[in-house]
């Protein structure tokens, strides 16, 4: 994530900057010995990073936009400019529409559940002084260091039709009627993916919110406790407003990361199946551009995803704007 919402979290860097005797940026003008030959040193220092950045990030990104106006298999020399044809074709593509719906559904469900639970856990951990909370924090953050393939593998095992953790347990309890084909049922598979996504990101957001909450001064709570405010009341009247900026940033960030996480997870866990019922936007793009060799078409999907996540982030950011509160 690009930095933290300054003001809510006190970054180590900010404290150091404030503590330093001479804050602020310093140019070469401040120190005499750096006057000669600066240009060469600057160039030599910047060039490797800029070249790598340009070749492997800027050019491919521009290519996504450019190639969305072409039909090209990706390998043949036959490349044709077709204007907006790729985009109009998308509207009639039932699989694309389904992938779009799935992405939006996952975005909404996973965001609401993860943020709600994350906030609850963070508030409990910071305010309630639970015994063994560093252990809880350790456990809850574990999924954030695991790879998506591992998580997909774990959940494939948990959801396994015959001997998985869930179905096996149900069978052992003689509740065979409740057994489901978690990853093979068109109506269920998206929920199974959603569960894995929440499982993966919960601890990460909890730790983020804990950091925000830790910076709220204790005396605010003390004063309200003397006034008889319950912990629940304190949460809604103090904690939530004071970490609002923190929350906004994570929400915006959430949109982008959920689009990506759903892809990597779906790709490894279900491959979009059964019959496209768990396909999400990025996995459909990858499938078209890489597996199906409809490169231009895939890039048009990429442009739509990009525009979509940008718009949603913008809307979310607008809708949640409040006057920043000070404490």
């Amino acid at each position: 994530m690009p930095g933290n919402p300054s003001g809510t979290l006190p970054p180590r860097t900010a404290t150091r900057r404030a503590a330093g005797p001479a804050p602020g940026r310093r140019g070469a003008s401040g120190s005499a010995p750096r006057r000669r030959g600066n240009g060469l040193f600057v160039l030599a220092s910047l060039l490797p990073a800029l070249v790598l950045f340009a070749v492997f990030m800027v050019v491919p990104t521009l290519n996504v936009f450019r190639m969305s106006f072409y039909t090209w298999s990706g390998f043949s020399p036959d490349m044709r400019f077709v204007g907006l044809d790729n985009f109009t074709a998308l509207l009639d593509d039932a699989q694309f529409v389904r992938a779009f719906q799935n992405t939006v559904a996952l975005l909404v469900v996973v965001t609401v559940v993860t943020m709600g639970t994350g906030l609850f856990l963070a508030a409990v951990m910071t305010r309630q002084r639970l015994r063994g909370r560093s252990l809880y924090r350790f456990v809850l953050y574990v999924p954030s260091v695991l790879s998506v393939v591992v998580i997909a593998a774990i959940f494939s095992a948990v959801f396994d039709q015959e001997n998985g953790l869930i179905n096996g347990t149900l069978q052992a309890l003689s509740l065979d009627g409740l057994r489901q084909v978690w990853l093979g049922d068109q109506d269920l598979v998206l929920w199974s993916v959603a569960i894995a996504m929440v499982w993966q990101s919960l601890g990460y957001y909890m730790v983020l919110y804990m950091a925000g909450m830790a910076s709220i001064p204790e005396d605010v709570y003390e004063a309200s406790a003397l006034d008889g405010a319950s912990p629940v009341r304190q949460f809604f009247a103090i904690t939530l407003p004071l970490i609002w900026q923190n929350l906004r940033t994570t929400l915006t960030f959430f949109v982008m990361s959920a689009v990506n996480l759903s892809f990597v997870l779906v790709r490894a866990m279900t491959g979009g199946g059964p019959d496209g019922s768990s396909e999400v936007l990025l996995s459909y793009m990858y499938k078209q551009a890489y597996t199906n060799s409809s490169y231009g078409y895939g890039m048009a999907i990429g442009v739509v995803i990009f525009a979509f996540s940008f718009l949603v982030s913008l809307l979310v950011s607008r809708a949640t704007r409040r006057e920043p509160l000070q404490f």
């Binding site: 492997f56 990104t61 996504v64 990706g74 892809f263 990858y286 995803i305």
Partner: peptide
């Protein structure tokens, strides 16, 4: 994730 296929083709 958006640019992995363009990188590959490049």
């Amino acid at each position: 994730n958006y640019i992995v296929v363009p990188i590959f083709l490049m």
